Computed example of a mutant assay.
Amino acid sequence: MVGVRRRFKLADTAQQIVGGFLLAGPFVVTEEVWTLAASMSLLQTLSTVFIVVGIGYGALYKADDRDPDAESEVGGIPVRFVSLVLVAYGSVLALALAFNAPNTFVGGGGERARLLGVDVPIRTVRVTVKAVSVGAVFSVVGAATADSLF
């Protein structure tokens, strides 16, 4: 499919979502992930972001025969890749919140801040961001695989 401009469609995002949720689920509900996340530094959290981006790009454009220059872009970045990264993080966050994982594994004590009009415990938000970054490493594999296979 090299050189052929393939439009990115809603069905492509749907495939990514299925794959992202499939592999994210087991990591969201595992206490070990939340314990690990609580002990991670900012540098370690940022390294997981780079890992997600690297895996996503590699799976979409290096392991497959897609040409990123032949795809629709937003801000110079292929829309398919933007969607993949958003799905990877979004699916983990959605499952974490749906299962009430942050309150279950972190609790709600400590300092609070207003986030989107809601009072939230700062520590819970920090650990949740870190746990989502860990889960996204696996979610991006599922999302990219589903996108590439179907």
Rank of each mutant, 00 (worst) to 15 (best):
L93H: 02
V125W: 07
A143Y: 04
G56W: 03
V2C: 04
I17G: 01
F99S: 12
D12P: 02
N100M: 04
G56L: 05
I122Y: 11
R123L: 14
V118D: 13
V33N: 05
W34E: 05
L22H: 10
R123D: 15
F150G: 15
V33T: 14
V120H: 08
M1W: 11
N100Y: 06
A146K: 02
D65F: 07
P68C: 09
V127L: 07
D64H: 10
N100E: 14
R123I: 09
V29I: 15
G56C: 06
M40L: 15
S148Q: 13
F105K: 00
L149Y: 11
T13R: 10
T48P: 00
E73V: 10
A24G: 08
P102D: 00
L42E: 09
E71T: 08
L149P: 01
T35L: 13
D67Y: 04
G90L: 06
K62W: 15
V118K: 15
G56Y: 02
G3C: 05
V132A: 01
A144M: 09
A88E: 02
V141C: 08
G25F: 14
A94H: 06
A63R: 07
G25K: 00
F81M: 07
P121T: 04
A101G: 08
A14I: 09
V18M: 13
G117T: 02
A136N: 10
G76I: 06
A94T: 14
V82I: 15
D69A: 14
V87G: 10
A37T: 11
R112S: 13
L46N: 01
T13K: 08
A113P: 00
V129S: 10
A136R: 08
Y57M: 06
T45E: 04
L95A: 13
L115A: 14
T35Y: 05
E31V: 08
F99P: 01
T30E: 10
S133G: 14
V52W: 00
Q16F: 05
A38H: 11
